[in-house]
């Protein structure tokens, strides 16, 4: 037996396809599958939420969600307090909502308000400081009531859960993959909630018109934000769940015109 030294010319143990090609094909496939599952489950969630009565919702979420939210949102030295307002009761009547909804005032610099499952609305003191007219506040409350009316808070929660489950099921234990999937899924989520926000804006307009007989002061909140953030980072609004502020103002004035809502003088907010 003799030895003949030899080396194979071609390496059969590796594929010679370009790695980028595989990456993009797989990524596109993943996005398509994820989107299909998300849309289907999202519709299921929407249908299911419509069958949950406000009483059931209150039974499920009362206490737990408000406590968790407050614990997460405020610092230790700041406080949260529940308050009642005649304005809010009247707005609720206009919105045709007959189950109890609690208002919370939370000390925070955030210029925002949140609707929580279980029937709670949190208004941050930063928002109250910014608003000058009662109408402006009424619009914000009407907007949150719109979320309750459309059950957006529950749908948003349900979709959030679905999204988390899908992304963790698809990416499994691979933590680096989750980093890839999460921005993509965030975009989908933001797109969905933008349409919900617009619907809530229009609902708030209707409530304003019902309560005051006009929609003056509706855009006050947005205009104050606009003045504040003139130089806001351009890219940010693609990722924001709230549609571009200018677009929302435009949208609302268009809607007021078609419905024949009129603008009128606002009432100064008494704090």
């Amino acid at each position: 037996m003799k030895y003949r030294p030899s080396l194979p010319e071609q390496n059969d143990n590796v594929s010679h396809e370009h790695p980028l090609r595989e990456f993009f094909v797989l990524l596109a496939g993943l996005c398509v599958i994820g989107a299909i599952i998300y849309v289907i489950l999202g519709l299921f969630i929407d249908a299911a939420v419509d069958h949950i009565s406000p009483e059931t919702e209150q039974r499920w979420f009362k206490k737990t969600s408000i406590n968790a939210a407050i614990a997460q949102m405020i610092d230790e030295d700041k406080k949260a307090e529940s308050f009642e307002s005649e304005l809010f009761d009247s707005l609720k009547a206009c919105a045709n909502i007959d189950y109890p909804i609690n208002l919370w005032r939370v000390e925070s610099n955030a210029i925002n308000a949140v609707a929580l499952p279980g029937g709670d609305i949190i208004v941050f003191s930063g928002l109250l400081d910014k608003l000058k007219s009662e109408n402006g506040l009424a619009f914000v409350l009407g907007h949150e009531l719109g979320h309750f009316k459309h059950r957006d808070h529950l749908k948003g929660l349900g979709r959030g859960i679905v999204l988390t489950v899908i992304s963790s099921a698809l990416t499994g234990s691979d933590s680096s993959l989750t980093a890839l999937v999460s921005p993509v899924s965030m975009l989908g989520q933001a797109n969905y909630s933008q349409s919900r926000e617009s619907a809530a804006d229009i609902f708030a307009l209707e409530i304003l018109n019902c309560h005051y007989g006009h929609v003056g002061g509706a855009t006050e909140f947005f205009e104050s934000i606009l003045n504040e953030h003139k130089d806001v980072w351009e890219l940010a609004h693609y990722f924001s769940s709230h549609p571009e502020v200018e677009k929302r103002i435009e949208n609302m004035s268009h809607e007021s015109n078609t419905r024949g809502f009129v603008d009128a003088k606002t009432i100064t907010l008494t704090k």
Partner: peptide, 23 residues
Amino acid sequence: TITTCLGVVSGSTVRAKHAGRDI
């Protein structure tokens, strides 16, 4: 009868099943 020895050769692969199979 082995007449000539040509050296060591190898074959290797890594394969995976789709996520449904894993579940």
